[in-house]
C-alpha cells in the first residue's frame, strides 16, 4: 500500500502544482491589464497627491498639504455637499419610480403594450449622458420646452431659466439624471420580479392581501439584491457625476451645481494642479466606498 501510494501522491502534488501554474498563466493577461490600467495608475494617483506638481515640470513633496486643502476649502466641501444632494435624484427617485413601474408592468398582461412600455422606459438609457445634458439644457432654457408647456397650462408665472436659477439649478440637473436612470432601474427590477415565485403572489392573494400588502411583503423583499445593486450603481453615479453637469451648467450659476467631478477636472487640467486634483480624487473615492460598502452589507444582513 505505502509503496504504491507514495509515488501516486507525488504525481497528484505535481499535477496540482501544474494546475496552479496553468491557473496563473490563464490569469496573467487579465491580471497584467488590471495591474497596468487600474492598480498602477491608482498608486500613482496616491503618489501625486503628496506632491505640488503641474503635470509636466518639477514636482515638490508637500506631504499632506493637498489633503488639508481639500478638507478646509469651502468651495471643495460645498461641491461634496451638492453630490450628496444628487443622490436624491440619481438614486431615490429612479429606484422608487422603478419599483412602482416594475410592479405595475408585472400586473399588466404580457403583450405588446407591456413590451412597448418597457422599451420606452429603457430608451433614455441608450442616450449618452453628455447628449442628455445638452438636450435638456435647451428644454430648460428661458424659451425652452418646459417654460412653453408651463405657459400653455396657464402656469407661465412659474417660467424661469431653470438651469440659471440658484434655487432650481441643482434639482433641474438632478432630474436629468432621474430621467436617464429610471429606465435602467425599471428594467432591472422587472427582471428581478420575474424571478419571484408566482406561488407566493397566489398565496398572499388567497390570504386577501391588496396591492400594497403584496408589494411590501413579497415584491420588496424579493428584490433586495437588485435594489442593492441599483443603489450602489446610482449612488456612485451621483457622487462621481460629471458629464451631465459639464454639458448643462458647468457648475453654475455661481457654484450652485458644482460637484467634485467638475472640481477635480478643473484643478487637474485647467489649473494644472495635479497634486491637489489627485488628493481630491482619492478623498472622493474614499467617500464613495464609505457610502457604498454599508449598502452592500445592509442588503446581505437584514434579510
Amino acid at each position: 500500500m505505502t509503496e504504491s501510494t507514495a509515488p501516486r501522491r507525488g504525481a497528484a502534488r505535481a499535477a496540482s502544482r501544474r494546475g496552479t501554474l496553468v491557473g496563473w498563466a490563464l490569469l496573467a493577461p487579465a491580471l497584467a491589464a488590471y495591474i497596468g490600467f487600474v492598480v498602477v495608475p491608482f498608486g500613482m494617483g496616491i503618489q501625486y497627491s503628496f506632491y505640488d506638481w503641474n503635470g509636466v515640470g518639477v514636482a515638490t513633496w508637500v506631504g499632506f498639504e493637498n489633503y488639508a486643502k481639500v478638507f478646509t476649502d469651502a468651495t471643495l466641501l460645498a461641491s461634496i455637499g451638492n453630490a450628496f444632494v444628487l443622490i436624491i435624484y440619481f438614486t431615490i427617485i429612479p429606484v422608487g419610480t422603478g419599483l412602482i413601474l416594475a410592479s405595475l408592468i408585472r400586473s399588466m398582461r404580457a403583450g405588446a403594450f407591456s413590451t412597448i412600455s418597457q422599451a420606452v422606459l429603457f430608451l433614455p438609457q441608450i442616450i449618452p449622458l453628455a447628449a442628455a445634458g445638452i438636450a435638456w439644457s435647451w428644454m430648460y432654457a428661458q424659451t425652452g420646452t418646459i417654460n412653453q408647456i408651463l405657459g400653455w397650462v396657464g402656469l407661465g408665472g412659474l417660467a424661469r431659466p431653470w438651469l440659471a436659477d440658484y434655487g432650481t439649478a441643482l434639482p433641474a440637473v438632478g432630474l436629468i439624471g432621474s430621467w436617464v436612470l429610471t429606465g435602467l432601474c425599471t428594467v432591472l427590477l422587472l427582471t428581478g420580479i420575474g424571478k419571484i415565485e408566482t406561488s407566493l403572489y397566489e398565496a398572499i392573494r388567497l390570504d386577501g392581501a391588496g396591492w400594497w400588502r403584496e408589494f411590501f411583503t413579497i415584491t420588496l423583499p424579493g428584490l433586495r439584491q437588485e435594489i442593492a445593486v441599483l443603489v450602489t450603481i446610482t449612488v456612485i453615479a451621483a457622487l462621481s457625476s460629471f458629464d451631465i453637469i459639464y454639458t448643462s451648467t458647468q457648475g453654475g450659476p455661481g457654484r450652485a451645481t458644482l460637484v467634485p467631478g467638475i472640481s477635480i477636472f478643473r484643478i487637474g487640467f485647467t489649473q494644472s494642479d495635479v497634486g491637489l486634483a489627485s488628493a481630491f480624487g482619492i478623498v472622493l473615492m474614499v467617500i464613495v466606498l464609505a457610502v457604498v460598502l454599508p449598502i452592500q452589507r445592509l442588503s446581505r444582513s437584514s434579510r
Binding site: V56, V58, A59
Partner: peptide, 20 residues
C-alpha cells in the same frame, strides 16, 4: 486594492513624478 495601491505608491515615492 487600497493596500496594493498604497504599496505601489510608496514604492514609487522614491522618485518624484515629472521631469527634472
Amino acid at each position: 486594492l487600497v493596500a496594493t495601491a498604497a504599496i505601489t505608491g510608496l514604492a514609487l515615492t522614491g522618485c518624484a513624478p515629472g521631469t527634472s
